[in-house]
């Protein structure tokens, strides 16, 4: 018998989050807030080029607090697959995504209106953990003053009714009426999607 020192499976704990605060723009979008000359341009402002494959779309929306007021200091990041459902990521095991599509976008909300806006493409479908296909979706991560841990949600598309009807994530919802909180409205390449942090229309947020 040898003595074996057990190795803990999980020796560290994730660093605790703290709010991004009201000055998140300084760090993440410095050019947007007037700090010019440090970086050539803010990251995540261009997801597509004229070589990107797929259907061009714009997604615009706002994030509302519990009083119905749009957050003007919010910053959102999105992450999505390319038109074939592949992610432009070293962690993508299935193949090489469209090199002309980053899949990642970052947008500070307009400081007057609170609107965020992304020019991107309609994502392809990505399998769920059991192999079934998920409906087309965009992952979003939301940070702001007053948000202590970044919020994860998704944008689906109202005009993908057939795919939405069998989406494996939607199946998890105890309250099916909440599916609509994740559906971007519109079509023909132009979608709007508002996010509600609280209230009767509260958006579904995920523990991913």
């Amino acid at each position: 018998m040898t003595n074996v020192t057990p190795t803990p499976l999980y020796p560290f704990k994730e660093s605790p989050s703290q709010t991004a605060g009201p000055y998140v723009h300084i760090g993440l979008t410095p050019n947007f807030c007037g700090i010019e000359g440090v970086y050539d341009q803010d990251l995540g402002i261009a997801m597509v080029t004229d070589k990107t494959r797929g259907e061009r779309i714009t997604v615009e929306g706002r994030v509302f607090d519990g009083s119905g007021t749009p957050l003007k200091d919010v910053l959102v990041e999105i992450w999505q697959a390319d038109a074939d459902g592949l992610y432009n990521s070293p962690a993508e095991p299935r193949g090489t995504a469209d090199p002309a599509f980053t899949g990642w976008g970052r947008c500070a909300a307009d400081q007057t209106t609170g609107h965020f806006r992304f020019e991107t493409i309609k994502p392809g479908r990505v399998p769920f953990s059991d192999g079934r296909l998920q409906a087309p979706h965009i992952s979003i991560w939301i940070v702001a003053r007053g948000i202590n841990l970044g919020l994860n949600t998704r944008i689906y598309f109202e005009d993908e009714a057939e795919a939405n009807a069998t989406d494996p994530v939607f199946e998890r919802f105890e309250h099916q009426d909440r599916v609509t909180t994740l559906l971007a409205k519109g079509g023909n390449g132009t979608y709007s999607h508002d996010i509600h942090l609280q209230g009767p229309q509260e958006t579904v947020f995920f523990d991913i």
Binding site: G66, E92, A144, L151, F206, D207
Partner: peptide, 26 residues
């Protein structure tokens, strides 16, 4: 932290097993 009061979701988060949408990143 007063700013959190109107910005904290109130309904439970919904969990699901990670998919490639979560396990990939830029």
């Amino acid at each position: 932290y007063k700013s959190s009061v109107l910005r904290a979701p109130q309904r439970p988060l919904i969990a699901f097993a990670n998919t490639l949408s979560e396990t990939t990143g830029p």
